[in-house]
Design a protein around this nucleic acid. Structure first.
Length: 135
DNA sequence: GCCAACGTTGGC
DNA sequence: GCCAACGTTGGC
């Protein structure tokens, strides 16, 4: 089982809506690195749901329902999407500033490459985030 | 609202 | 194949 973090602008599609929808197709990724990460996901993988721009915090936990399939919103190009399922909110959201301040998270994608929207989370990183989330 | 970082495009 | 110009994302 692998772990990932996905980013979303809450003004476009926030955690509230994700929970209401329960499952959603994660479409619209138009970056090769992010797409390749989507394609590596397997059913049952766990995902952290991050709010960019306004909240700047990890707020929720999701699971991968269906592995990568062609993105139906792509009119051209070779793009993928996955189906994810909302599990629950974190006990405490973990803010970007907390993440940046944590010594075990200096190599984490959010810190090193702010623009990447789908990234892997290592075991150590997951542990650090879980601790801060009060899980 | 600004700007840094990054990715993409297109001219050469 | 290089690199300047441009567009987008996202943190501040």
């Amino acid at each position: 089982m692998n772990r990932w973090l996905i980013k979303s602008d809450p003004e476009e599609y926030g955690w509230e809506l994700m929970q209401k929808d329960k499952t959603t197709l994660w479409t619209g990724v138009r970056n090769y690195q992010a797409r390749n990460n989507l394609r590596l996901m397997k059913k049952g993988d766990e995902l952290l749901f991050y709010h960019s721009n306004i909240d700047m915090a990890i707020v929720g936990l999701c699971k991968l329902n269906k592995k990568a399939q062609p993105d139906p919103t792509a009119t051209e190009g070779d793009w993928s999407c996955v189906e994810i399922k909302a599990i629950r909110s974190l006990a405490k959201p973990v803010t970007l500033s907390q993440i940046k301040a944590h010594e075990d998270l200096q190599q984490f994608g959010l810190v090193r490459n702010a623009r990447l929207s789908v990234m892997p989370v290592s075991e150590k990183e997951w542990q650090a985030i879980s601790d801060m989330a009060g899980e």
